[in-house]
Simulated assay, not measured.
Amino acid sequence: MRNIFFIIILLAFVSCKRKAKTESVKETRTSGTLKILVDESVGPIVQEQIDVFSLDYPQAKFETTVKPEEKLLPAFLNDSVRVIVLPRMLNKAEEKYYNQRNIKINTSRFAVDGIALITNQSNIDSTITVKEIIDILQGGKSDKRLVFDNAYSSTFQYFKKLANISQFPAKSVYSKNSSDEVIKLIAEDKNFIGILGINWISGRNVKMANYLLKVKTLGVKNLSGKPGADQFYKPTQDNLINGIYPFLRNVNIIDCEGRDGLGTGFATWLRSQRGQLIVLKSGLGPHKLMPREINLTKENK
């Protein structure tokens, strides 16, 4: 009896293993599991894309890590995760790791993002110039105070490069831990100007809807000789598409998997008509405006 019981258990175990193996999902452009790193400043638009892609392709699973840029890059550069979404391209030093191993770097732009400047609704000021922002970042005297989404964020790095500085001054420049914290601060304190990706101040940020009613977006005028230097522009979708809003960034998916898999499929889908419509509805600028087909029919007389 003991031998029979043992055989039954063994057969059940083998059967379960075979079943699990049979049910394992094949890695293709529309199925399998993709580990992906996402810069926090563009997190909402990427999550929307993942949600719809997963509906279209139920066998596609995503393991997503959303963090500020500087906290994502170590995992990408030590080969822990090979797909990342950033509002910029890799620099030469970052490309070196994959180039040394002869792994192709596939970079695809799928959206145009803008960095918004917001202030309390009760403030009289509704405009600011790029020169004013640079002066504050370089430590010049000003009664304005800037607050960023995170000290490790891509927006923080963007403005460091803009102002040509290695670190921000101790006064007049601050940071919070997230974009939502910036929105809350601006809604409650009129002494700050918040800096964050425009995706966070769209009507889709339902969680912060009550706070967003108490903030407004500043119009920005660019430096002389640059696009957007003729007047003050807000980060509207038209201004992103036309390239006249001063603080623009390309949102890229960077795939270093070295194979034709789910990463490749998702990157291709982001630039497809369906992916671009999601970008369009989000308020960001699409990589490419899709043509609309109009069917003309003759009316019966």
Rank of each mutant, 00 (worst) to 15 (best):
G228H: 01
N222P: 02
D230E: 09
V130A: 10
I201Y: 00
K176E: 13
K176P: 10
T155Y: 00
S153Y: 06
K161Y: 10
P169R: 08
N222Y: 05
N150A: 05
S178M: 04
L212N: 03
L185A: 04
L196W: 04
Q138V: 03
I198K: 12
M208E: 09
V147F: 03
T129H: 08
K161N: 15
N222K: 03
W200A: 04
A151P: 14
K176R: 13
V147N: 00
G140P: 02
N150P: 07
P227G: 00
A163L: 01
N191Q: 10
P169G: 06
F168W: 04
D149S: 15
A163W: 02
I183P: 09
I124M: 12
D230P: 05
F156D: 14
Q231H: 12
S179E: 10
L137R: 01
F148N: 06
A151S: 15
K190S: 13
D238F: 11
A163S: 07
T127Y: 04
K176D: 09
S142A: 07
S172R: 15
K226E: 12
K176N: 11
L196H: 01
I128C: 01
L218F: 01
K171I: 14
S179W: 07
K214C: 02
N199E: 15
Y152E: 15
A170P: 08
K160C: 06
F232S: 00
Q138E: 08
K221Q: 13
K226A: 13
P169I: 07
K171A: 13
D125G: 11
Q121H: 11
S122T: 14
I186Q: 07
K214R: 11
V173Y: 06
S142M: 05
V182A: 00
N199Y: 07
P235M: 04
K160T: 06
K190Y: 08
D180F: 07
N210D: 15
L146W: 00
A229N: 10
N164Q: 15
K171F: 14
E181V: 04
I193H: 02
K171T: 15
L137S: 04
S153L: 07
T155V: 12
L146N: 03
K176C: 13
S172C: 10
F148L: 10
R204F: 12
N199K: 14
E188P: 10
Y174R: 09
I128K: 02
L196T: 07
S202T: 15
I195E: 06
G140F: 01
Y233R: 08
G225Q: 03
K216E: 03
P169C: 10
N177D: 14
I165G: 02
L137W: 00
D189L: 05
A116M: 07
E132A: 03
K160F: 02
D143P: 09
T236D: 06
F159S: 05
L137K: 05
I165L: 06
G114K: 01
F156A: 12
E132I: 00
N205M: 03
G139D: 03
K160A: 05
E132F: 00
K176S: 13
G225A: 03
D180G: 13
Y174G: 09
I183K: 09
T119P: 11
N210E: 15
I115T: 10
V147T: 05
